[in-house]
């Protein structure tokens, strides 16, 4: 049953060095505050997983928390590159980053398989692309009914999945709505689950398109108002597009990046996890 904890407590309890940590949220509901807490607690050697790594992953990578990235599309949406991600891949800064890349459909089906208790997921894809030879977690499988050859992707079962949602209740039940991406599957595929929420309310009210995650599949719920910024939380905040544009300038230069992180994330502390 989920514990209601502070974000610092929850990250300390649930995220260990070397863990495979999925932080999902598809443009909407990105768990940025939780990512910042991981950075502040100097977690290292993490395998970080996300369909669409964006600013908070650029920060996790640039601050040296990640040794491996599993992903589908790593960019600053509508703006351009993730400069810390590129610096890690192109120049090995702050240290080399192992990458495992998939198509979105492939990585999505890895979560689906993990959530379903299956060893692999199946899809039409990958054949004819260079992704196939680059990624150990993609093979081919023959359909026992039709004989058709299909792509098989290994189940993904993160040690921890972290998502952001609108509301939790005192029992740790969680309600999210709007674009929910692959959040439900990432949660159900994981060993441990942390959900940050905009607020804890007495009672969750059903709503159209709402996805309810029962408290008994969650380990910790932490209140983190505005915890998706500069991403957004439908019903609570709007996406700050200008911050995504600003990030391009901040992240281009290593020193500018580190100074920004020190001021905005580390709270002036120098305990940078690198």
């Amino acid at each position: 049953m989920a514990q209601i904890q502070s974000l610092a407590e929850a990250v300390a309890n649930l995220v260990n060095d070397g863990d495979c940590v999925a932080l999902e949220g598809f443009t909407h509901l990105i768990p940025v505050a939780a990512g910042h807490e991981i950075i502040r607690q100097s977690r290292c050697e993490l395998t970080v997983v996300r369909l669409t790594p964006d600013i908070v992953f650029d920060q996790l990578i640039g601050m040296g928390c990640a040794k491996k990235l599993v992903f589908g599309w790593g960019g600053n949406p509508g703006v351009g590159s993730l400069h810390r991600f590129r610096d890690a891949v192109e120049n090995g800064w702050p240290h080399p980053l192992v990458i495992e890349e998939h198509s979105h459909a492939g990585l999505t089906n890895r979560y689906v398989a993990g959530a379903s208790g299956l060893p692999f997921g199946v899809l039409r894809g990958y054949f004819g692309t260079d992704l196939m030879g680059r990624t150990e977690t993609v093979r081919s499988v023959v359909c026992p009914f039709t004989g058709e050859e299909l792509a098989a992707v290994a189940a993904l079962t993160p040690d921890v999945t972290i998502i952001h949602a609108q509301q939790g209740d005192p029992h740790g039940n969680v309600l999210m709505w709007g674009i929910t991406g692959v959040n439900k599957e990432a949660v159900l595929a994981a060993d441990r689950v942390l959900v940050t929420v905009e607020e804890i309310v007495e009672r969750l009210e059903p709503r159209p398109g709402g996805v309810l995650l029962p408290g008994w599949i969650i380990d910790a719920v932490a209140e983190a108002p505005g915890g998706a910024y500069p991403s957004y939380t439908a019903g609570y905040s709007e996406r700050d597009n200008s911050e995504y544009v600003r990030w391009d300038g901040i992240s281009r230069d290593r020193e500018t990046f580190l100074a920004w992180m020190d001021e905005h994330v580390m709270g002036g502390s120098t305990a940078v996890g690198r």
């Binding site: 589908g72 599309w73 590159s81 198509s103 979105h104 692309t129």
Partner: peptide, 9 residues
């Protein structure tokens, strides 16, 4: 290093 495959394939 470009963003990668995303939904394209």
């Amino acid at each position: 290093r470009l963003p990668g495959a995303g939904g394209a394939p």
